[in-house]
């Protein structure tokens, strides 16, 4: 059995204005093996975050099932940790305090907390910044703290919702590189949402391509680039092939978007 099993998932949201329920994700089926790195790409609004948050147990499931190691997901649990895109750090806590937060919530003992938090702060290269507050850090550093906080609770599954989405291209590449290094060492299962095609390919064992109206899976593409990967693969023919394939999907989505908009006009 795979570690993450999503079966025929449907997620709907209340839309108070019309009173109807809006279907954000429909008929999504996906299995992720333990230790696998799966990325999710798709145009904005196609339900990537919704799918990820549902796996996290933060969004209720309206149809189908999600299971982690065979146990149905109904709420967040210590087997999963989320890295959010934006500043989800507590501004009044230091880096150390922020990384300790998850450990506090999961009732780790006081001594363990500091020691573990420091270990992961060191791992993401922020040992000298443990006493800093979030507003004193750059965007990239803040996301390192987010990643350290998620890893510190020792989850089996790492869920990341565009963690580098707000970073500039260069920082983003560096962070992707470092994430891979950490992931290879920590052996976590990773589900990673992005709208950046290169990032999706570079990180992934498999790329899930989503489409919209309602959010569904269009294709699941295996990436056969040996690991450890380095930035030079970005220029390889193999990588270019994957890139073309994903671009075609997204172009299709953009076209259909214009059609819909045209019809409404």
């Amino acid at each position: 059995m795979a570690q993450i099993e999503v079966r025929d998932l449907q997620i709907t949201y209340d839309t108070p204005k019309t009173g109807e329920r809006f279907t954000a994700v429909e008929g999504v089926t996906l299995s992720v093996e333990a230790g696998e790195f799966v990325t999710i790409v798709g145009a904005s609004g196609c339900g990537k975050s919704t799918l990820l948050l549902a796996v996290a147990g933060l969004v209720p499931v309206s149809g189908g099932t999600i299971a982690i190691d065979g146990r149905t997901v109904t709420a967040p649990g210590p087997d999963r940790a989320v890295v959010f895109q934006e500043a989800s750090l507590l501004p009044w806590r230091s880096v150390l305090g922020n990384v300790k937060f998850g450990l506090e919530m999961q009732r780790w003992t006081r001594d363990d907390r500091t020691e573990r938090a420091m270990r992961f702060i060191r791992m993401v290269g922020l040992a000298n910044f443990a006493d800093y507050h979030p507003h004193q850090l750059s965007g990239g550093m803040r996301q390192r703290v987010n990643i350290a906080r998620a890893l510190a609770v020792d989850p089996k599954v790492l869920l990341m919702d565009e963690p580098f989405g707000a970073l500039d291209a260069q920082t983003r590449e560096v962070m992707g590189d470092e994430l891979l290094t950490i992931w290879e060492r920590e052996k976590k299962t990773a589900l990673f949402v992005t709208h950046d095609i290169d990032e999706a390919i570079f990180l992934a064992d498999r790329v899930v391509v989503m489409g919209r109206n309602p959010g569904h899976i269009k294709e699941i593409m295996r990436v056969d680039i040996p690991r450890p990967r380095h930035e030079d693969v970005l220029d390889s023919d193999l990588f270019n092939g994957y890139r073309k394939r994903l671009r075609a999907h997204l172009a299709e989505d953009m076209a259909s978007m214009h059609l819909v908009e045209g019809a409404q006009a």
Binding site: L58, V82, F84, S88, L90, F101, M105, V153
Partner: peptide, 21 residues
């Protein structure tokens, strides 16, 4: 609300959210 959601993702109870966030 983003911080509340973050806290919940780590299993924070309502009381935790109240006192810590």
């Amino acid at each position: 609300h983003k911080l509340v959601r973050m806290a919940r993702s780590f299993g924070a109870s309502r009381f935790d959210v109240f006192t810590r966030i």
